[in-house]
Design a protein around this nucleic acid. Structure first.
Lengths: 204, 204
DNA sequence: ATTATTTCACACCTATCGTTCAGTTATGGA
DNA sequence: TCCATAACTGAACGATAGGTGTGAAATAAT
């Protein structure tokens, strides 16, 4: 018992042993990019080893194999996505300006392969229920952020009081995910701007 | 040479031999449902054998293995999807009514797993370029159908002449795909109707 | 009934999946 | 310097992937 407690309490403090030759976060970023491009089933451990430079055994021990690696890579992606949502949609004061700014900042880079959150939702049957839930949760959080801005806009008189803010929030969320699909077919930022401009007319 | 030509010219006419114990179209429907639910990489040949009742060898000979089976199952799905688009969006006279009707008829059944066309687009790296192109083509065709209705609406005075019908068509297409994602998270037809109602306000 | 032809069932192929094990190397404290 | 510990390496694990060969079963013309 005492030994167990001791070994546990001192586990964090590295007293001896070889140092890890990789950076945990860098590995997660590489893995995320691969899962992003090829999905969970489409990504093979051999590719993860190749891209991250970490041995199969290392990946298993450190991240818990393919599933653990996917979960953590997805969490990293979702955390970044959530930050991006919050940076624009949770800015004070809430209102229509935030929504406008959100769609303005959206951009397809080059080699756009959609959004990992959306891709995970469409791959529901292949991923852990935890992974699916995490993606779903961020999706809902984004929807709620849209809603909050609409509600405050309505309270401030930016938006007519009879507008259905709940349905509008769902529409904005739908357009947001739809853009991640549309971008696969036609990754043009100017086209995205034109689409956003149209939907934003609803908020004038 | 003569033998080759003869054997070829008579191939279609079944003169003798054992009859197939399965219906080609039924097999494709079963395969389609599986690919729809689990994606290309996520569907294994053993499952296809189990569901269709056709042996591995039969699937290979008749459909060209997993890839051929996916292509043909996808084509079947896309054909149905295209028919659904055309039935509403290519009805005469073209106009805003068609668009309204399209979104009205949309429905998530139970156990909704998104749209196979959209899922194929998000699985780009795992599927044949032919399969991806086929999905992309139908996506674009739908967008063009939206456009046609908007153009005719504009010509008929249903829609103000200064409206950007191109951007509007892209928006409708984006909402359409977005709904297939939103339905995974929240497969409620009434919510779908509310979302559609909002975007249709743009066309009044 | 015989026979040519086609499909079917079973088992087997190679390749690769994700996972794991010994054996070796590097590190910090005694 | 030696040792206890942790991490790394390469090989190999069993399972299963998709694809295939062989012989039996079924069919329609002879």
């Amino acid at each position: 018992m005492i030994n167990l407690a001791l070994s546990h309490s001192t586990r964090d403090i590295r007293l001896m042993g070889r140092r890890k030759s990789y950076d945990r976060d860098e590995v997660l970023v590489k893995a995320m990019e691969l899962f992003w491009a090829k999905g969970f089933e489409g990504t093979h451990l051999s590719e993860l080893v190749e891209v991250t430079g970490v041995n199969r055994f290392g990946l298993y021990g450190e991240f818990g194999g393919k599933e653990g690696l996917f979960q953590q890579a997805l969490d990293l992606y979702l955390q970044g996505t959530l930050s991006a949502y919050r940076e624009t949609l949770d800015a004070k004061p809430h209102g229509l300006g935030n929504i406008q700014e959100y769609f303005r900042r959206l951009s397809y880079g080059d080699a756009y392969h959609g959004c990992l959150m959306i891709n995970t939702l469409t791959e529901q049957d292949n991923v852990t229920s935890d992974a699916f839930s995490a993606a779903r949760e961020v999706y809902c959080e984004a929807r709620n952020l849209f809603l909050k801005n609409l509600q405050e806009a309505q309270a401030a008189g930016e938006l007519a009081p009879d507008r259905d803010v709940d349905a509008l929030a769902n529409l904005l969320s739908t357009v947001d995910s739809g853009l991640s699909i549309h971008g696969i077919v036609s990754p043009s930022d100017s086209e995205k701007d034109a689409i956003a401009a149209q939907v934003l007319r609803l908020l004038d």
